[in-house]
Design a protein around this nucleic acid. Sequence first.
RNA 1: GGACCCGUAGUGUAGCGGCCUAACACGCCGGCCUGUCACGCCGGAGAGCGCGAGUUCGAAUCUCGUCGGGUCCGCCA
Length: 454
Amino acid sequence: MAWRRLQMVPTQHQIQHPREQLTRLRTSELGAHVGERVRVAGWLHARRRLGGLTFLTLRDGWGLVQVVAEGAAAAALDPGPPAESVIAIEGVVTRSAQAPGGLEITAPTVEVIAAATVPPPVALGKRELKAGLATLLDTAVVTNRHPARRAVFRLAAAAMAGFRATLLERDFTEIQTPKLLAAATESGASVFPVDYFGRTAVLAQSPQLYKQMMVGVFERVFEVGPVFRAEPHDTTRHLNEYVSLDAEMGFITDHHDIMALLRDAVAGMVGAMRARAGAELDLLGVALPEVPATIPEITFVEAHELILARHGVDVRGELDLSPRDERWLGDWAREERGSDFLYVTGYPTRKVAFYAQPNPEHPEYANYFDLIFRGTEMVSGGQRRHRYEDYLAVLAERGLPAEPFAAYLDAFRYGMPPHGGFGLGLERFVMQVTGLPTIKLVSLFPRDLHRLTP
RNA sequence: GGACCCGUAGUGUAGCGGCCUAACACGCCGGCCUGUCACGCCGGAGAGCGCGAGUUCGAAUCUCGUCGGGUCCGCCA
């Protein structure tokens, strides 16, 4: 292992000009230190050797920087530590038109902090990762390091930050509801059972019931957290664990108040992606959507008529929209309304969850909406029922027992205002923004029908 | 749960009955190269074609089973 020679090579304790160890700078900070001798540390992203001249690319949590070694310094890097080894470099920040980004570090000394013991399974120093989905996911611990992969997750983080900021501005309180529950939060949905001290609990498939209860405490709440779905779905837009961005708010007139709130939340998410992750957007070549001041709205019934008129397919008897229908509606919104976003409102009451408030004038339709983003359903939301007796009636009508919902129903027994909210799938949003072909590439460690590791 | 597709070096692919003692690219190893930036050039190692059975004179190539992966639908975010 010839690179071990490096460990004998001068470290920061032995360099020619003994001094105290420099404070580590991030690669993103180097522009303010041109001409100074600095210390950077990170991963060995790439190496190009040209005889007496060696280029290293160092990657840290924020970016990349080129390091140029000549002469003896280059010889000391022959062959050097394997890719992805953790190294620290001290050298002079130099402005150079030839350097990527216009900056590079010259006259370096290289210290190996932790050598990689194997080469990465997929070459990480390339512009693109050449690996299939299964390889990418199975080796996510290292492939997620690639700048293009990391950028996706930074965008997700920016989206969450924008969501939080928007709701905090509007005096929402962030809450965390329990993920271990005694009973399913919504009827019919598949849940994961877990052993709870000898009893069977389930993983929360939605914060729905709890966030509604919390309207009784705070009026306005939101939550960013995981939800778990035991549905054995196997598609490019489903995960069995995903991040749900939930909001719930009291004293509304109807679902349109929620739709306006959601519009602002989405605009806040898009704005935060632009403000906080511009470099990542550039790297991925992502064009952010425009969020219209008012997102176009079409009713469920109108949507069916539209599909008949535009595509000659009669789905008027259906209780829902199929993925194909949603793609068609997305195309229509894009072409006819110039919007990537489209609200579909007024879903059939018997199709939506029991807590959905029916339209007072047309009780067969609910004050409910979906937000379609570029042809895929991204959000569901609406106005909830808020009267105790309405809940008793709907539970009875649907043949659901009241006992599992006792605490939930108590909230209404003790008085709740008209309220509503929504749940937005973070990964779906980021998938649609980035145009990635599968939602599994938007989750750090996706959980799907076949994958429980890593 | 239903329909369909695919499993070949570390990775991505080609080969689709004999020309395969399995090819190409990236990665890896060795050599040369002082401005690369998907560096370039030369050389090398690395798979016996997911696994099992069968058909055939002959199978990576055909059939069946099995395991693994994926796409679409249902359902949802």
